[in-house]
Nucleic acid binder design. Structure first.
Length: 471
RNA sequence: GGUCCCAUCGUCUAGCCUGGCCUAGGACGGAGCCCUCUCAAGGCUUAAACACGGGUUCAAAUCCCGUUGGGACCA
């Protein structure tokens, strides 16, 4: 068995988008499972649209989702002589020819053919004229076989037959000397010994155009696999108008890279009823057989659920680490550094059941920073009333009598007071919650006290009483 | 227009290859209930799909043909 060699070949014309990541992911998974090689290749022959920033964005995105490559990144613009030398080889072997037809002429003839209801493909006018490129403005066309059929045994869709008689003699070198997409891909895939070309569905009809080029060049033909597209909620191809499509936007929205990966793989691939997979499981269980043949709609709600699951099950230190940049942006990192080691992890435990993203988590965690609580006005108005002040005072007195904080004893003291006063738990709990956190929603009261510690619990309680008395 | 691809709950999907175990399973989202100091989380319950029409067969979501509807590519 020869070693598996696969590649991800994005064009650097913007950020790295969701669809690209998924394509990369399937390739990567297969490479890692097969102990093969994963190659990153930048298809930047379209210089008018390619930018260095885009290349950086691709690399940054790949790193963020943890898709490491073994070779590359290669850039097509550094390989231009390879395309021309292989084009020349085809010309010398009579498998390509110079075509002098101008774009306008081709256009006119195509329209004419269309009007007559004939095939719109190139009419082969220059095919056997043995023209040269003396003027330097001719395009080089590939002599595509016109008989028989080309078979694509797709890894995902199975056998697909294409009739060669409808295949065009496609241009492989433009009149400006630049290779066309279909030609440079073949040269690259062949020279890089790619064994499995796995790409988006949109390239399916390019495949029967490319296979004869591999053959004419004398290279073995790789296996092909075509991944179904990702659609937006309106079933149209996923684009900016469906919301964020850049992978990095999801980092900024507080998604964990592993959650992204898990969701994206499940979008088009399945393993029975299983929804959550570790990276290792994905590598072990992946198979082309279970890749869906039909397109999938990107569903942000399910992604959000997957992310929430990952926040709950990921190692605390990982979540805390991923949270740090966001805390930094919120200006909260000084407190983290001042706090004892493990304090942040303790906080994460407190809120990880409630936060579906890291961005939400920052908000959940905010009340535990700083000495004083910041009151939500409505919450304070509703719960910190003069009527409740006396009982809050009694609670404070009892807590002050307890020299060290202990969840059990403080909870017992609290409940005893509730019982003695003949009120409901909630009647006291809500005001205390507002006093301690400033808000009406929080984790369990005694967990909150534990994270705040004895001193801050008492001082915030005093602050609450003060507010209640003057209301 | 030509060629090709696709078609199971709103969405992601299992089942399809190797027909019967499918009165079609799971998940997200929705609805309801339970738990409860709030918010979550969790638990339970529930509504919701084989695009349509023919055929083959004792039997079809599963095989075949067609229709319709989406999509891609070529320009």
């Amino acid at each position: 068995m020869t070693q598996v060699r696969v590649r991800f070949a994005p064009s650097p014309t913007g950020f790295l988008h969701i669809g690209g990541v998924r394509t990369a992911l399937f390739n990567w998974l297969f490479a890692r499972q097969q102990k093969g090689v994963f190659i990153l290749r930048i298809e930047d022959t379209d210089q008018s649209r390619s930018t260095d920033e885009s290349i950086q964005a691709i690399i940054e995105g790949m790193k963020w989702v943890g898709l490491d490559w073994d070779e590359g990144p290669f850039r097509q613009t550094e390989r231009m002589d390879l395309y021309s030398s292989h084009a020349k080889q085809l010309l010398e072997h009579g498998q390509a020819y110079w075509c002098h037809c101008k774009a306008e002429e081709l256009d006119a003839r195509r329209k004419e053919a269309e009007a007559k209801g004939l095939s719109q493909k190139y009419d082969g006018r220059c095919r056997d004229r043995g023209l040269t490129n003396a003027a330097g403005d001719a395009a080089l066309r590939f002599k595509a076989p016109q008989e028989g059929e080309t078979v694509v045994d797709d890894l995902i869709k199975g056998k697909i037959l294409f009739d060669n008689s409808v295949q065009d003699d496609l241009i492989i070198l433009r009149s400006n000397g630049y290779p066309t997409y279909n030609f440079s891909v073949v040269v690259d895939d062949a020279l890089m010994n790619i064994t499995h070309v796995v790409r988006g569905d949109d390239h399916l009809t390019n495949t029967p155009r490319q296979i004869p080029i591999f053959e004419a060049l004398g290279f073995p033909v790789p296996r092909f696999g075509h991944l179904p597209m990702i659609l937006g909620s309106d079933k149209a191809r996923l684009s900016k108008r469906h919301g964020a499509t850049s992978i990095m936007a999801y980092r900024d929205m507080g998604y964990l890279p592993d959650a992204m990966v898990n969701y994206l793989v499940r979008l088009g691939w399945s393993h029975g009823d299983q929804e959550l997979f570790t990276r290792q499981e994905l590598i072990e269980k992946f198979s082309w057989k279970n890749v869906q043949t039909s397109p999938a709609v990107f569903n942000p709600e399910k992604l959000l659920w997957v992310n929430a699951e990952y926040i709950k099950i990921s190692p605390l230190t990982d979540v805390a680490q991923a949270l740090m940049p966001l805390l930094e942006a919120a200006g909260l990192t000084d407190d983290v550094r001042a706090a004892p080691a493990g304090w942040l992890a303790q906080l994460v435990v407190l809120v990880k059941e409630r936060a579906k993203t890291l961005v939400e988590m920052v908000d959940w965690v905010r009340p535990y920073f700083g000495q004083a609580a910041t009151f939500d006005e409505e919450a304070a108005k509703k719960f910190l009333t003069p009527a409740i002040a006396p009982i809050l005072g009694k609670l404070l007195t009892r807590f002050e009598a307890l020299p060290v904080f202990s969840k059990q004893t403080w909870e017992a003291a609290f409940k005893q007071l509730v019982e003695e006063e003949g009120v409901k738990m909630g009647q006291l709990a809500q005001p205390v919650r507002v006093a301690l956190t400033g808000r009406t929603a929080s984790p369990g009261l005694f967990d909150v006290m534990e994270v705040l510690g004895r001193d801050r619990t008492l001082s915030r309680l005093r602050q609450g009483i003060e507010r209640a008395s003057r209301a």
